[in-house]
């Protein structure tokens, strides 16, 4: 039954994609049905800080196929993107080499996108600054005809001058998010956050605006949800992928080895709220396992997820989220 529901929804998306019609309405219908989140674990994907490429590809393959109900990676991506899309992979490199989205992950994803027909010049892996990207071991690439890796601070990129005012948000957007891309993947690091509680795929978009420091009051609520609800994000966001190879379950968002656990997990979700909600539960389990009070007890649970649910951005309720977990 589950597969049938998704099958119908995704076939429809596929048709729409071929017709190059705005996917947003269909996407919205998809996320408002029972939200599916896929957790893929692969023991040995991370050995001495080296990513096992073969296992990583396998993780993507299983994660995306289960999520979309398709037979292979190419088909899975084709129902989310069309060949004319310009795809942004928004990563998180704020915390240096040890706790940023590992380069192997977006680079693999970019290759998959290319394989499904998107020209490599239309794929961009990006974050706020080139300095942070370099610190996280990315090699900046601004070559016009290849997959680009760059920060908003690259000469000639910058912020769109149009101030976007939406609910409590008033920000300039990276022109990568506002102008360059037509579709967005939030490829975030799953981690504890001293103010937000949890930072994952929704909060990752704080790196797409010029003034994220203004949105950390009251556990980042309602700001994370309201930012996601802006035109440049909600309409373009296609999939959330959480990098949980190492999870910082306490004292985040900066890296502290004593509270970082090797989980060797990737989490996939079309519903960003559900994906982040599931990420939160993983962090809570790790905290409990290590005898650390829950985020609720520390009065910093990610209440922005409930706000996001109220805004109909997705589900933040375990009863309405279908979790499929697989170990490979």
């Amino acid at each position: 039954m589950r597969c049938q529901i998704y099958g119908i929804g995704l076939n429809s998306i596929c048709c729409l994609a071929n017709l190059d019609i705005d996917l947003n309405e269909e996407y919205f219908l998809t996320v408002m049905s029972r939200s599916k989140v896929v957790i893929i674990k692969a023991k040995g994907v991370l050995t001495r800080d080296e990513v096992n490429q073969k296992k990583l590809i396998h993780m993507f393959n299983r994660g995306l196929c289960i999520l979309t109900g398709q037979r292979n990676l190419k088909e899975s991506l084709r129902i989310l993107f069309n060949e004319r899309d310009r795809v942004g992979i928004k990563i998180n490199t704020l915390s240096g080499k040890m706790l940023s989205t590992r380069p192997e992950i977006p680079l693999s994803l970019a290759k998959f996108l290319e394989d499904c027909g998107i020209h490599q010049k239309n794929i961009i892996i990006w974050d706020r600054t080139n300095r942070e990207l370099k610190n996280a071991k990315y090699r900046i690439n601004i070559n016009r005809n290849s997959i680009k890796i760059l920060g908003t601070d690259t000469q000639g990129v910058g912020y769109n001058s149009k101030l976007i005012s939406h609910l409590n948000i008033g920000s300039l957007f990276s022109s990568i998010q506002s102008d360059f891309i037509t579709s967005s993947i939030s490829l975030a690091v799953l981690k504890d956050h001293g103010l937000a509680g949890v930072t994952a795929s929704m909060k990752n978009y704080f790196g797409a605006i010029h003034n994220p420091n203004k949105y950390h009051d009251s556990n980042c609520n309602p700001f994370v949800a309201e930012l996601f609800d802006t035109i440049y994000i909600k309409k373009k966001h296609k999939i959330s992928i959480l990098d949980g190879l190492i999870v910082q379950y306490h004292r985040g968002p900066s890296y502290h080895s004593k509270w970082a656990e090797k989980c060797e997990t990737l989490i996939f979700g079309l519903d960003p709220v559900a994906a982040d909600f599931v990420g939160w539960q993983i962090i809570e389990k790790l905290r409990a396992k290590h005898g650390i009070p829950s985020l609720k007890e520390e009065k910093r649970e990610p209440i922005y997820l409930k706000t996001a649910e109220k805004m109909r951005l997705g589900k933040a309720n375990m009863d309405e989220i279908e979790i499929i977990e697989e170990e490979i």
Partner: peptide, 10 residues
């Protein structure tokens, strides 16, 4: 197609 504003670039 974009309107890129260098003055706001880092």
């Amino acid at each position: 197609s974009s309107l890129l504003i260098d003055m706001h670039a880092f």
